[in-house]
Write a protein that binds this DNA or RNA. Structure first.
Lengths: 342, 342
DNA sequence: CAGACAAATGGTAGCGCTACCATGCGAGGC
DNA sequence: GCCTCGCATGGTAGCGCTACCATTTGTCTG
C-alpha cells in the first residue's frame, strides 16, 4: 500500500544499511561510532568493517536534527582579510581539523547589526560552541550569546565580564607600552595614527593617551585617525596629514603594522631619517616588520594562539570540564627594533 | 498513550507553531517562506505576522534533511592567511551574504590528500555548490567533484577541461608577461624567486622560462625556489641566496609580492639601487606595491572578482540557468612602476 | 452549463539519525 | 535460590522540515 518512495537521497548508504550488513540494530551502529566504549569489541569490529565496505559517512544534518545539537563551531570575526583575524581563524581551523566539528565563519564587517543578524542565524543551527571577536556586543547580541545554550568564547581582548569565557590581551596596555617605549627612547612629539577605529583601536589609543598624559606631553593635534579601512596606502596618507598638521612630529605609534609600513615608505620617499628624525612603532608584529629597512619596532600579539586557546577552552567545556580559568590573558611583547633605536 | 516527549529542542518555535498561529497548514508556511509566489497575498501576510511574532527561524538541519540538499556552499582553499585566498573568500562571502546560503570553508594546506578528505566530508552534507581552488585535483578528488551532484566551480586558473565551471586567469601568461617586461626594460640576468611552489607557481615559472628561452637568456642557475611557505623574511633570504649563486643578477621576477617586498628591503639594506642595479617584479599586486619606495611593478590579479564571479556562476547554475560560458578568464594586468623603470 | 484545467491549500509519509525506554543476561548479595 | 543491579543491545518514536499527491476552488473553453 505504502510503496517506499524512491530514495530522495540518491542512494548513499544510511545507518540502516550498515546495521543490516553488520547484523545489528541501527542504534548500535550509532553508538559504535559515537561512544565506542559502550559497544563490545566484537560488534565494534564488525560494524567498522561494514562502514568501510559501504563507504558510509554519517549525515550531519540528520544527526543534528535528531540530537538537537550540530557539530559546528560558529565563529564571528569583523574581517576575513585582515591578517590578524586570518591568523586567529587559522588557529581555530588547525585546532579543529581532527575533530568532528565543522566551522562556520561569519563576517560582521565591523557592524553590530550584522553581528546580531549572524548570531540569530547561527543560533538556528544550535552550534556546539561560539567564538566571537570582541567584548563590545550590542545588548541584543549579548543576549543571543547568553541564550545560545553552548559554550561561548570571546576573543582578542581581556575584561572583567565575559559572557562565558574570554581569551586575549589588553589593547590599552599594548598602546601604553608602545607610547612609553617611544618616550623612553627620547621621542617627545609622538603622534597616533589609526585607521578604522574599532573598539580595540580605541583602547590602544586610550593607552597611548594615558602614557602621553602621564608624561605631560599629550596634545589632541597629535592624533590622526579615520574610519576608512586600514591599508599601507592609507598609512602613507595619514602620515602626511599628521606631518602637515604638526611638522615637528618626531615619533608615531601606528595602530597597526600596515599603517606603520606606509609611514616608513613615506619617510623613505621624503628622505626623513628613521629612527633619527622619526621613531616608528607598529602593532601586531607581522612578519615583515623584522625584515623591513630599517626594521620596525612593533607590539607582538599572539593571534594564532588566541585561536587555538579559544578552541581548547570550548572543547573542554563541551566535554563537561569547563576550564577553571575562564579569562585568559595571553599578553603581548614589545619587539624593539631599528625604527626606534635612536 | 503516547505522551508527547518533552521537546528536545528547548522550546524554539517550529513551523507547526507558526502554522497554528496563522491558522494554516504547515506546508503553506513552508511555501510562503521559500516560494512566496505560490501563496496568496493574504496568507503570506498572515504567516509573516506569525513568524515575526514568534521569532521563528527555520531549522537549516531539518530543512537539509527533508529536502536532501543543504543550503551550503563548500569552499576549498589551500590557505586561509595567504592574502590572495583571503580576498577570494571575501568575495565569496560578500556575494552570498544576502542569500540563504551558508559557507563552509575547508583549508587543504596545499595537500591533495587533505583535499580528498575534505571533499568526502563536504559530500556528506549535500552542499548546494562547491568552489575549489585549482585544477590539479587528485584523480580521487576529481571523481568526488564529478559525483557531487551540484554545481562545481574551480577557481584561480584557466584550462580546457574543468569539472564543471572555471574562473581565473593564466599563471603561465602572467609569468611570461612579467619576464618579458623585465627583458624589454633592458634587464638580462633575470632571476626567478619563488616559495612554496604549488602548481600555480610552477606555471608562472614555466611562463618566465618561456620568455627567457625565447630571448636566449635562460640559465637554470637563475632559479631559486623552496618548498617553504612564502613570507617577506623568506624573500630576503632567497634573494641573498640568488645573489650568492649569481652575483651578476640584474633583475628578479618574484613569485609573489611578499617575496618582492623582502627583495626590496634587502636591496635597501645592501645599498643595491632599484631599479638601476636590480629590477623587481612582483605578483598579485597587493596594495603595498604601489606605496613602497620605490614602488614595485607587479602583475595585478582580480582575486575578489574571482570569488564574486564564481558565486554568480554557481547561483545561476543552481537556479537552472547554467552560464553559457563555462570557462571565464578574468585576465591580469601588468602594473608598471618604479622598480623596473630604468 | 458540463468538462477541463490551473491555482491555492492541505495531509501524509518520510528524510537519517538519536533520545528514551525496554529487554535479556550474567554477576553479585543475602 | 531469589532478587537486585549493571551492562550490552534493541525497538519505537520522534527531531522539524519538505516531497509528493490529493483536494478544493475558481476560471475558462466550447
Amino acid at each position: 500500500m505504502t510503496r517506499p518512495r524512491s530514495r530522495r537521497g540518491g542512494g548513499r548508504p544510511t545507518i540502516a544499511d550498515v546495521a543490516r550488513k553488520a547484523g545489528v540494530g541501527a542504534i548500535t551502529v550509532s553508538r559504535a561510532l559515537r561512544e565506542p566504549g559502550r559497544v563490545s569489541e566484537d560488534l565494534r569490529r564488525q560494524i567498522q568493517a561494514a562502514v568501510d565496505e559501504l563507504g558510509y559517512v554519517p549525515d550531519p544534518n540528520a544527526r543534528a536534527l535528531a540530537s538537537a545539537r550540530a557539530e559546528v563551531f560558529g565563529v564571528l570575526v569583523p574581517s576575513l582579510t585582515n591578517n590578524v583575524f586570518a591568523e586567529v581563524v587559522r588557529g581555530i581551523y588547525d585546532s579543529l581539523s581532527d575533530s568532528p566539528f565543522r566551522i562556520q565563519i561569519g563576517n560582521t564587517h565591523y557592524s553590530g547589526l550584522e553581528e546580531e543578524r549572524l548570531l540569530q542565524l547561527f543560533g538556528s543551527q544550535r552550534p556546539a560552541a561560539l567564538i566571537v571577536a570582541g567584548i563590545d556586543q550590542t545588548p541584543s547580541a549579548r543576549r543571543s550569546l547568553e541564550n545560545a545554550g553552548c559554550p561561548v568564547v570571546q576573543i582578542m581582548e581581556t575584561g572583567a565580564d565575559p559572557v562565558d569565557m574570554l581569551v586575549g590581551f589588553s589593547h590599552f596596555d599594548g598602546g601604553r607600552t608602545a607610547a612609553e617605549h617611544l618616550l623612553q627612547a627620547g621621542y617627545r612629539k609622538i603622534g597616533f595614527i589609526g585607521a578604522r577605529m574599532d573598539p580595540r583601536s580605541q583602547r590602544r589609543l586610550a593607552g597611548y593617551r594615558a602614557a602621553m598624559d602621564a608624561a605631560g606631553l599629550f596634545d589632541p593635534r597629535l592624533i590622526t585617525t579615520t574610519p576608512v579601512p586600514s591599508s599601507v596606502t592609507l598609512g602613507r596618507e595619514l602620515f602626511r596629514d599628521a606631518l602637515a598638521k604638526m611638522p615637528t612630529l618626531d615619533g608615531v605609534f601606528c595602530n597597526n603594522d600596515d599603517i606603520a609600513l606606509g609611514v616608513l615608505f613615506e619617510c623613505h620617499r621624503a628622505s626623513i631619517d628613521v629612527p633619527k628624525q622619526i621613531g616608528i612603532v607598529g602593532f601586531n608584529d607581522l612578519d615583515m616588520m623584522q625584515v623591513s629597512f630599517p626594521s620596525i619596532t612593533s607590539v607582538r600579539t599572539h593571534r594564532y594562539e588566541i585561536g587555538t586557546r579559544a578552541v581548547a577552552m570550548a572543547l573542554a567545556a563541551i566535554a563537561g570540564n569547563p576550564p577553571r580559568q575562564r579569562i585568559v590573558d595571553l599578553g603581548f611583547e614589545l619587539m624593539r627594533r631599528e625604527s626606534t633605536a635612536r
